[in-house]
Nucleic acid binder design. Structure first.
Lengths: 193, 193
DNA sequence: TAAATACGTTCACTTAAGTTAAGAAATGAT
DNA sequence: ATCATTTCTTAACTTAAGTGAACGTATTTA
């Protein structure tokens, strides 16, 4: 299980055995069952998550129904907004599948950063990379129609369409579940004709 | 002019005079006229920008017309995607107003980081903070209608509605200029009635 | 200053998403 | 295995965004 993590990190920086041991000794690997809730609206938390295996999602409850806004799968990290701004969470986080996560807190990070400054470089690079990627995602979202967004998702993250319930995908695409159903029927119709 | 920058940085970390001088000696302040283009689609560049004064925007040209996807104003930083992934730019960047920017490159950053590790902390913190903020923005975008997005913008960044042409705002809101016009008329009508 | 260009609004029409409701299919729990 | 719940689809109707065009008003610029 640790190898998954070290293989990933090795793409960015080289780790000494000392550094690897420091990570292992933090003992931050945790398993969750499908449907388990990691964070609720209104809660305060200091936990950040790194997905080793499985899938988690963030969602709001607005006017009584769930709006899923993001999915995090293998090798993706999520530091909830409430950790950054030290306020109660605006959203929920739960597991879409059985999931293995690495937990982190600002304190743990601070300790690691001072012992191994290299880790702070890693975190900076990952944050900058993810930020640039997010910006492109947002740009694509703004400049395309729901149908284009669905087709785009089909290209870029076909796995998500398999692993995630339609009604969660719908809000991720910025539309209602009924509209997603209709839109898919429309696409099938076009393909036939 | 330097004070603007140091006041901002002091919110995150304390700088020694040595460190301040290191920044000043980089001599990275540059002025641009309204309309000036900083980056074009297809170009490669290593420049990141930090807005000291004014406003810049990123836009795509899709099917012949401009789609503005982001605005950066005072104390906001932009590292274009093409700098991160070392590929030609997918978008344009230009000045909405007369603007004063700080330029940076990965090389300059690397040098500063090795001389003053504190700067890497600052950049990590800024990146994480901006990432969390962007995620919330994206969430709000996904979970609201064009009209709600406009009203939300009116609350959160009323300055933008003043400083930016309507047709640029429209694509920023994910709609056509005509739809923005209509939507505004609709809101005025409601307010009256 | 005159002509050209760009910008914002309005209108009529088309297309697609939101809404409400009903029923079928899949999933989970006892 | 059965029942209950959740999920997905379909349909009819409403509402709003996309489209194409026209028009008036800045703003450029020749």
């Amino acid at each position: 299980m640790h190898d998954l993590l070290f293989d990933f990190i090795s793409k960015y920086i080289a780790l000494t055995d000392d550094e690897k041991n420091a990570i292992v000794s933090l003992d931050v690997f945790r398993s969750f069952k499908k449907g388990a809730t990691l964070l609720k609206e209104g809660q305060k938390s200091n936990d950040g998550y790194f997905v080793l295996k499985g899938c988690i999602r963030t969602y709001y409850i607005i006017g009584g129904d769930e709006k899923t806004t993001a999915f995090y799968t293998e090798m993706e990290a999520l530091t909830p907004h409430c950790v950054i701004n030290k306020a109660p969470s605006e959203y929920y986080i739960s597991c879409v599948e059985d999931t293995i996560l690495i937990f982190s807190t600002p304190d743990m990070e601070a300790e690691m950063f001072s012992k191994f400054p290299k880790f702070e470089s890693l975190c900076r690079i990952l944050a900058e990379e993810f930020l640039a990627k997010q910006q492109i995602n947002f740009d694509e979202f703004k400049t395309s129609s729901p149908e284009q967004r669905y087709l785009n998702l089909l290209q870029k993250r076909p796995d998500l369409i398999q692993r995630v319930p339609q009604h969660q995908l719908a809000s991720y695409l910025g539309i209602k579940p009924q509209s997603l159903s209709r839109l898919r029927a429309r696409i099938l119709e076009k393909d036939k004709g």
